[in-house]
Each structure stands twice: as C-alpha cells, then as structure tokens.
Design a protein around this nucleic acid. Sequence first.
DNA 1: TCATCTATGTGAAAGCCTTCACAAAATAGG
DNA 2: CCTATTTTGTGAAGGCTTTCACATAGATGA
Lengths: 222, 222
Amino acid sequence: MDEYRETELKKRISESTIRRLSLYHRALETVEENGKETVSSKELAKMEKLTPAQVRKDLSFFGSFGTRGLGYPVTDLKVKIARILGIDRIWNIALVGVGNVGSALVSYKEFARQGFKIVKLFDNDQRKIGSNHKGIVVSDVKNIVSELSGSEIEMVVVCVPGSVAQFVVDDIVKAGLRAILNFAPINLKVPDNVFVRNENMAMELEYLSYALVNNHSKNRVK
Amino acid sequence: MDEYRETELKKRISESTIRRLSLYHRALETVEENGKETVSSKELAKMEKLTPAQVRKDLSFFGSFGTRGLGYPVTDLKVKIARILGIDRIWNIALVGVGNVGSALVSYKEFARQGFKIVKLFDNDQRKIGSNHKGIVVSDVKNIVSELSGSEIEMVVVCVPGSVAQFVVDDIVKAGLRAILNFAPINLKVPDNVFVRNENMAMELEYLSYALVNNHSKNRVK
DNA sequence: TCATCTATGTGAAAGCCTTCACAAAATAGG
DNA sequence: CCTATTTTGTGAAGGCTTTCACATAGATGA
C-alpha cells in the first residue's frame, strides 16, 4: 500500500493510534523547524516517549512512508499525517458558554495554529449576549438550532455547566452537527453517529492524587 | 478482601481503571443527590456508558463493596472511592502561567469542588507579577524553586507556552514536587518518580476532525 | 421457612494493543 | 560491484483489558 484511503481500509484503526498520530504530527513540526529532512522511528519515539516499533506500526496502518536505512521524510510525512487527521484544512467551530473556560478558549492560540477557528459564540446570559469577544458577538443560545443548521460550522465546543449541557447538546444534534468537544463533567447522550470527546480537567488531577497517595512509581520494581 | 490497602496490593491497577473510578465517583454524587441509597452496577454502567461487568471488575480490585441481590450502598461507595483516589482531603496547588487558560483555571469551580485548591500563582511577565487573581498575588516564576520547596503545595498546573515549559518543570522537580498537570503541547522530560498528566485540547479536536473526515460511526457495520 | 429473584464477585475466554524479532530494502563507503 | 550498516515494514508472540457466564449470597414475599 502506498497511500492511505479510508474506503479501502478494512481494519478499524484504534483510538490510541489516532491520538499518537497527533503526537507524531507535532514532533514532526519540531523536527522540521530544526531543519532536518529525515527522521527515524527511533528519534520520533524518543521525542514522544514511545517505542520505535510503536511508531512504525502506527504509520504502517496508513501506508509505507519511510525509506529503509534512512528514515521518514519530515515534511512529507507531516503533510500526510495532516491529511489523515483531516487537519489540512480550516474547521469552523462554535463555542457555547462564554464563562471562564469558554472565553479562555476563544483566545487559545493552539486552536488557531492548528486550523481550528472559533467563529461563533453562544450564551444564555443576557449580560453576555451581544457582547464582543475577540471580534465575535455572542448570540443567544436559544437560537442555536437555526443558527447552526446548514452553516459552515461543523464542530462545537461545549463549556456550559453540567446541569444544562445535555439540553445544549440535544440542540446541537438537532442542528445536524456531529462533533462535540465537551468540557462539562457529565456523560452526554448522543446518537451513534455523533462524536463526543470529553475534556475533564478535574479527572486528571484526581489521577495525580491517586498516584501520589499510592506512591506509585513508573519504574517500581515489585 | 474487605477493604483496600495499597501495601497489600500485588497487581498493578491499570490507568483505565483509575480513570473510571473518577467516573463512578461523579455518578455516585448524582445518584446521591437523587436520594437513592443503593445503586446497581447496571445503573452505574448506564450513567457512564460502560458495561456492568466492567464496573464490577473495577471495583473488585479494591474490595467487595456491594450486596448480592441489592447493589452498592451509594454514600458508602462514594466515600470509599474518594479514599482510594486520595480526594478525601484538600490538595494545595500552584499554577504557573497566568495567561488565558491559566486565569480561567484559577476560577474553575470544578477544581475547588473536588478539593483542589489553587493557592499560589507564578508568571514571568512583570506586568502580571504582583497583580491579584481571586485573592492570590502573582509571584515571579524565578523564585519558584524556593517558594515551592518545603511548602504545603504538592501539585502544579503548568499553563506556560511550550517553549518554556521544560524549564519551568525542571524547577518544579528541583523543588521536590512530584505531580504536574501540563497544558503545554510538548512531551515533558521528568524523572521516573514524577507524575505528569497532559491536557492537550487541540489533540481532542484533531480526533474529532479525523472522525468526521473518515466518516466513522461507532456502530458501523463493516 | 422456603422458593424465587436479583445482582455481586470472579475465574476463564475473548479481544485488543504493544512489543519482538527479522527479512527486506535502501544507503554508504570503498 | 560488493560488503557492512542502517532502518523500515510486518507477521507472530506476548501481555494487558474487557467481556462472558455462572456460582454464590443476600433480598423479597408468601
């Protein structure tokens, strides 16, 4: 296989592999900035704390991108991974809930840098509706279905309290959108063709808490 | 086994199990609010989109908390999971990088609610140093080693740009801290006894991008 | 008290993901 | 052109995680 095409793909690619593709992509950006033209699986692995075999196996699901004895062409591989991930384009995004977290994300440079463009804001607070955040006027969330339906927006970031997140998400689904990044600490119910990713920052601190309390060590010899 | 003790534990508990404990904990909070006194593995599973067998297996690593024919005692199980996770106490936390994301987290209620208390702020920007965020005065990051060493702070949230994150983390390690929640999009190098959790929000959007472009469906029949 | 029902706890099986190990392919240097 | 070296691509093995399936134990109701 020389080039990846989803329609030809039989095997399901695991979630872990896709997440690592993101890591390879950012590692390749770094390598490219340093002016290197080729990079080995060993070097990529070291940069992201993985094994060389893992890197090669992941990439092999999508094609043969490397040259034996030499490694992978940096820019070329970066472009190919971007194409696989679908980040070789601009994605227009709406954000609901312009609170602390929401307004931080409006200005979050990493989103913009990767082509994720927040173009619409919603809130239910009359004091916020009509106000301007980084050039975007906040709309009333009660119009969300009509404003998103048939628009150029394909993803929504949800930063509302848990108590109302399900209602907001029901509307997003009603508008026909299929990709949601959820910051509310609840399990959202959506149809099977809608994708939800959860960002649960408190959960990560809980994991750290567990690790400290149980005195784990990555290297522990038992 | 009736009660969980780490020192007696032989088998390593998987990361996924610990993450799910957080989910069970929040589900139990909801169930408790609704006034129920017992809950079955089936109900817990439904709330977090898992399987009943998964719930029972996870809990069984730590003890026998349920009653056959009846289910689990809600409050009791919640308290026991909190103890396992180490969230039956207050954790004092420092935050470095009072930018968009950093200052949003200072006001993030979910942290406070779970006992994660941000008590110290650092930045390298002279305009921010000395300013007040929610009652906390921002300190100069160049004093971070001395200010953290031997303090009551045990975790650090890092919200600085990728280009300086490694330097900040080196200082955190130097100060003897062992738990870091990292928002910078780089792989941090730390000794094996230091725990790092990465919060990579752009990566989650990249996953959504991949899912949309490749028209996956959780239920696809191949 | 006894029969029925419900839901846990857990070995075993199945499934999934990572690592191993090596043939193959290309480079590099003479 | 030939040999030594490097590094990929990949079946197979190994290891880890989830799911299955059922014995067990307590609840419930007559």
